[in-house]
Simulated scan of single mutants.
Amino acid sequence: MQLRVTFVAAARSSSLLAERFEDDRPLDQAGWDEVLGVAHELLPLAAAELRYCSPAPRSRATGDALGYSPLVQLGLRDCDMGRWRGLTLGEAMAREPESVDAWLADPRATPHGGESLLTFISRVGEWLDTRPVEDGGRVVAVAEPAVIRAALVYALKAPPSTYWNIDVRPLSATTVTGRSGRWNLRFEGVPTQPARA
């Protein structure tokens, strides 16, 4: 029996350079415009038997705007960044450069007083592994890009440092299939465009 879990990255609440740790701001106008622009592509995912989202305002708003009516899942919350919550990476670096370097280099480090990268990946993986398995069951989960990166590292059993090499764009969809402890990354086919003469 296999489960199909499609993660949809929440629309943005700020520019990429202004992304904040544990950002709890609502969608900005650009985020709403982006949701409206891709809704027709992501709307079919509303047919999933189970529809979830992280507790972050932008994830809930994205899921609602796409017609998913998702249930909030605490296991999908962003990484607990302790005293760096609400800061950008640049702001944290300006205040505590050695601590940020340690956090980026060691997946077990918690210089901010919150969750380590390894603990974060494990928590998101535990959420993934505890989804109800029904043959052919489909799940959609709207979450922050960081949560989706953690889920992919876990699903692929990749080293934690891989987390830093995964780019998850707002409103992108990524699917894993399988069951507890055995997940596969699935790339969806893109319709080919006829060649122009």
Rank of each mutant, 00 (worst) to 15 (best):
A141T: 08
P170W: 11
R182S: 07
V140T: 08
T162Q: 08
G125P: 08
K157W: 06
K157M: 13
E115Q: 14
R182I: 04
L156R: 04
H112Q: 15
R138M: 07
G181S: 03
A150Y: 01
V124G: 05
R169N: 06
V168S: 00
P107W: 04
L171K: 05
T175Y: 06
S116N: 11
R179K: 15
P160K: 04
K157I: 00
I148N: 07
G137C: 10
A158T: 00
G137S: 15
E134F: 02
G181F: 10
G178R: 12
E134I: 08
V153T: 01
P132I: 10
G114N: 14
T130N: 15
I166Y: 02
E134K: 07
S122M: 14
A158E: 02
L128I: 06
T177R: 13
G113T: 11
P170L: 01
A141D: 05
R182M: 08
K157F: 03
G125T: 09
K157V: 05
P160A: 04
A151P: 00
A146I: 01
S180H: 14
L152G: 04
V147F: 04
V147G: 01
W103V: 06
P159D: 07
A173H: 09
G136S: 03
A173R: 12
E144Y: 01
V147A: 00
R149Y: 02
L104I: 09
P132A: 08
V139Q: 10
V176H: 06
A150H: 15
R179F: 04
G181W: 12
L104W: 15
G181A: 13
T162H: 07
Y163I: 02
A105H: 00
T119Y: 07
V142A: 10
G136M: 11
A109E: 08
E134W: 04
D167L: 06
G137Q: 08
A143W: 01
A151T: 01
S172D: 04
P159M: 02
P111T: 12
F120P: 00
S122V: 09
A155V: 09
E115R: 09
L128C: 04
F120I: 10
E126D: 11
V142P: 03
E115P: 10
D129T: 12
A173N: 14
P160M: 03
H112D: 14
W103A: 09
V140R: 04
I121K: 12
Y163G: 03
L156S: 08
T177L: 09
D129C: 08
L118R: 11
A158P: 00
L128A: 03
R138N: 08
G181I: 10
A109Q: 15
E126L: 15
V176I: 11
V142Q: 13
L156D: 06
P132Y: 03
A141P: 08
N165A: 09
E134V: 07
R182K: 14
A105T: 02
P159Q: 00
D167F: 12
S172A: 14
P132F: 01
P111C: 14
I166A: 00
V142W: 06
W103D: 03
I148L: 06
S122A: 13
V133A: 14
T175I: 02
L117A: 02
A105D: 06
I148Y: 03
G113R: 15
A105Q: 12
G125H: 06
D167V: 05
G137N: 05
R179I: 05
T162R: 06
L117I: 05
A151Y: 02
A155M: 08
L156H: 05
W103M: 06
E126T: 12
A173V: 12
D167S: 11
G181V: 10
T130Q: 12
P145I: 03
T175G: 06
T110W: 11
